[in-house]
């Protein structure tokens, strides 16, 4: 139980996937103009990330047992790409309302490196939470908390950018540059969480 709590805190705050590990920055810049789109994107990422991590967890077991784990990258990205397609088709049939909310973001997720990053992560590092590689339960928790962390960063950032539209920004800094600098300051704020992990561990 403690292990799970540590995973959650580590992934959501301390090692935030967007602000401290720089994964998924392209959509982070792209869809963060409005809070609503940011929320939609976060939901879609969470959905795919958890399923992808679960599926690739067993794929990796299969690859290792066949002694061909050097094919990890190829296998994972193919699984993720087809998974995204499948989720899209299933969602369309099963829950049209959810598809309405998340549908437009789904195709973007294949090239969102958070999903592949987290899927590879669970087999390689444990962020110091446990000595052993993650089991399947911890892997799913890890995926979910990374998705939450990503959503948190994305939503806060979108809120800031909505406010930024009203601010008087110098001509040269308008648009992307000021967004980067805002993200930098937000990352600075997230660095404040760094001690948290230690005090709990």
């Amino acid at each position: 139980m403690v292990e799970y709590i540590l995973i959650i805190i580590s992934a959501v705050f301390v090692n935030n996937i967007a602000l401290s590990r720089f994964l998924g920055i392209c959509p982070f810049m792209g869809v963060s103009n409005k809070v609503n789109t940011a929320l939609g994107m976060s939901g879609a990422v969470a959905f795919v990330m958890v399923i992808a991590t679960l599926v690739t967890f067993y794929i990796q077991k299969l690859l290792v047992s066949c002694g061909i784990d050097f094919l990890q990258t190829i296998a994972f990205i193919l699984v993720i790409a087809s998974l995204v397609q499948m989720v899209e088709i299933v969602l369309k049939k099963v829950s049209p309302s959810l598809y309405q909310a998340l549908g437009v973001f789904l195709p973007l997720i294949t090239t969102n490196c958070t999903v592949l990053g987290v899927a590879i992560d669970v087999h390689n590092l444990t962020m110091g939470v446990s000595e052993e590689p993650y089991g399947v339960g911890a892997a799913v928790i890890y995926a979910l908390s990374n998705a939450i962390g990503y959503g948190l960063a994305l939503t806060i950032f979108a809120g800031l950018r909505e406010q930024l539209e009203l601010a008087d920004v110098p001509e040269g800094m308008k648009g992307v540059p000021v967004a980067f600098i805002t993200a930098g300051i937000l990352a600075l704020a997230f660095m404040g969480f760094a001690g948290l992990f230690q005090s709990i561990a």
Binding site: L19, S20, F22, G172, M173, V176, P177, V178, A179, F180, I181, A183, G184, I185, A187, L188, F190, M191
Partner: peptide, 22 residues
């Protein structure tokens, strides 16, 4: 040290994009 850490990356890149735009 801030420039080696995460915030520095965003901030330096922000200025670089602004200069490239100019």
């Amino acid at each position: 040290i801030g420039f080696v850490l995460a915030p520095g990356a965003f901030i330096v890149l922000g200025y670089m994009v602004a200069i490239a735009k100019k």
